[in-house]
Amino acid sequence: MSSSSTLPANPLTRPLAARPGAVTLFAQCLVDTFYPEVAEAVVTIFARLGMAVDCPPEQTCCGQPAFNAGYRRQARAAARHFIEVFENAGDIVCPSGSCVHMVRHGYAELFADDPGWLARSRRVAERTFELTEYLVDVLGVTDLGARCEATLTYHDSCHLLRGLGIERQPRALIGAVRGAHLVEMEDADRCCGFGGTFAVHYPEISTAMTAEKVDHIVASGAEAVVGCDVSCLMNIEGVIRRRRLNIRAIHIARLLAAGCREDLWHA
């Protein structure tokens, strides 16, 4: 895809001296509930950069599951809670492209008829960043000192790639991991078939899509697929494990926090 090469340099990039001492973490409900180690990895990454991570204890969900399923009243309730929890934070970092997309673009749709909440949501949205975007574009860092001897392939998640235009940042970060060899799979940018409630309502269609994704991962020869959204990874891994394949699905934060291959393979 060529969109990344035409993107202008990010005006947000801050010189080293202007880096904030801390970021605020929105863990994402799926990470918090099913993959706490991913949030731990985010904390490790920022610790290496000398930055503290603040985690508002009241955080829950951005509201995306309800929004995508059409339940806007219910989504607004969760979104208002999110805004109240995060509106006094500094830079908010989230290890999920689809949640950041929700905050940046979904809230505008959700609060289109509510100027007060719309303005509040905008102020939060302006300071909410996806993890790889924050590292590469805002902090200007690609090498986090990680090491992992493995052949890896990268899955572009939909909202991250087409919604936020984030494509080169994760690849640059993976490229800087010592020992890691990145191989591109066919159709890396094609949806994995998750789609929230879609996966539950239309399991046949969903898994037909996931099967294609897993076939491409296998064909790439990679030992693990890396992604920026645990939703996709949970879906892909669900099929990988059902098929008893010896391939890992790894969130990029864990890769970037890894000191060696064993950190990811025997965790």
Partner: peptide, 22 residues
């Protein structure tokens, strides 16, 4: 949620969530 596990496995809820660990 049974549609999910027709052809996929599902991770269990972690013994402690990240915020509970914190």
């Amino acid at each position: 949620l049974s549609g999910w596990t027709e052809s996929r496995d599902m991770p269990p809820v972690a013994p402690q969530s990240f915020l509970q660990r914190k």
